[in-house]
């Protein structure tokens, strides 16, 4: 698992790679928090290279989304593989976090 950060006009793009489960969810949370930092206007998580996410990983996404919500920073996800998309649909988290088909749409919406 690895998180890479890029900045696009005030939007933080966090690319997540690999598998996230209970064995590395704490590391995932640390890497994600470090990538986000204190002064971003919006966050987009690109999950194209995320092969698997367990409920422990979902909890980190929820925690980060809640924290950002309190700071009025928007967060969205994009480019989910089919298995990951289905995890978000079954858990119902697609109802509380905006999901885009591709990175361009997500960045355009976040930049507004």
């Amino acid at each position: 698992m690895n998180v890479q950060a890029e900045h696009h006009d005030g939007v933080l793009l966090a690319k997540v790679e690999g598998r996230v489960d209970s064995s590395n969810s704490q590391d995932f949370e640390r890497q994600l928090q470090a990538a986000i930092g204190d002064d971003v206007g919006a966050v987009v998580m690109d999950l194209a290279q995320l092969a698997y996410i367990s409920s422990a990983g979902l909890r980190v996404v929820l925690l980060v989304a809640k924290t950002l919500g309190q700071r009025n920073v928007s967060i969205s996800l994009c480019s989910l593989s089919d298995p990951v998309q289905s995890v978000f649909e079954i858990s119902g988290f697609n109802r509380i976090i905006q999901i885009y088909d591709n990175q361009a749409d997500a960045l355009a919406a976040a930049g507004k």
Partner: peptide, 10 residues
């Protein structure tokens, strides 16, 4: 599915 979400999330 019945349009639900994991409990405790919101």
């Amino acid at each position: 599915l019945t349009g639900g979400i994991a409990l405790g999330a919101i």
